[in-house]
Simulated assay, not measured.
Amino acid sequence: MGAGTGKGTDLLRRLGAPVTCLEPDPRMAALLAARHPGIRVLGTTFEQWRPPAGGVPLLAAALAWHWLDPATRNRHAHDALTPGGTLAVLGHTYGYADPEHGRALDAVFRSADPTAPRRRPDWFLHDITGSGLFADVTTTTRLRDMPFTTDRYLDLVRTFGPFRRRTPDEQTRGLTALRHTVDGFGGSLIVRLHTTLVLARRPRGAGEGTTLTGT
């Protein structure tokens, strides 16, 4: 789901099973197909995709769950899985090792887009469990500190969905403000990457309730 250019696909191919990727953007789909010639690439959205009869054993969304229709994504994922099949959702939240850096950058982002939603790092865990459709939900989280120069940080921001939805003028103003801010830190900062993996299973039969474990 939302395979992009195939970074998450690298991991799935190691399972040794056939992989089908959904990517509606034709440019990214072309890069994905060129990078992984052995996989099947469908230029469609998750909402438009119709799974094969009997469902699939595994559905994976890496940094893409937020792009799916919140009103239908859990139901469509449940119905697309075989009984006992697994939903795997991976997401990142970007924080900062220095709280002062975090507050300064948050002020810049808020100034550029005051209405942008603020999600918890594990928001999709609550989305999936809240649907009541899955059993044996497990969650694993990892923290990693990564050094960024100003230019590398701006390249990262350019990949964010909220940034890409802004007009070109708004993007330019935002990047200028961010550059000024990070340069004020001495031209570098430590990004604290919070990664969460959620695994959930489609129940095999009636009566299986939602259970949750985490690490």
Rank of each mutant, 00 (worst) to 15 (best):
R165S: 11
I190K: 07
P203S: 07
G186Y: 10
N74E: 12
S131R: 11
H36E: 05
T82F: 11
R120I: 00
R173Q: 11
G54Q: 05
R204L: 12
L87I: 03
T82V: 12
P24R: 08
R103W: 14
A64L: 09
G4T: 01
R27A: 10
K7W: 08
T141M: 10
T140I: 04
A3F: 07
S131Q: 05
A34T: 00
D151I: 00
T115H: 12
R40E: 12
F160I: 00
T72C: 04
R142H: 10
G95D: 06
R158P: 01
H76S: 00
P18F: 13
A77Y: 09
A29G: 15
L90W: 09
T210L: 10
W49R: 04
T196P: 01
R142W: 12
A33S: 13
M28I: 12
A53Q: 07
G6V: 01
R103Q: 12
T176R: 14
G130W: 15
R110Y: 10
R202M: 06
L12A: 08
A97R: 14
T210S: 06
Y153D: 01
G205E: 13
F148R: 02
A177G: 07
R202I: 02
A88I: 04
G85V: 05
F148H: 07
R202N: 04
V182R: 02
G38W: 05
G8S: 05
G187K: 04
L22R: 10
R27I: 12
P121A: 13
Y153F: 14
K7V: 02
A77S: 14
L178Q: 05
D122R: 08
G4E: 02
Q48W: 10
P52F: 11
R204Q: 09
C21R: 02
R73S: 04
R120G: 00
V89K: 02
H101W: 14
L156T: 00
L32E: 03
T115F: 13
R201K: 05
R73A: 03
Q171F: 05
A77W: 10
R75L: 13
T150S: 06
G186I: 15
P117R: 08
A60G: 04
T129H: 07
G95V: 01
L189N: 05
V198R: 02
V56A: 09
R13N: 01
T44M: 07
H76N: 03
P168A: 08
T138R: 15
F46Y: 14
P162F: 15
D69I: 13
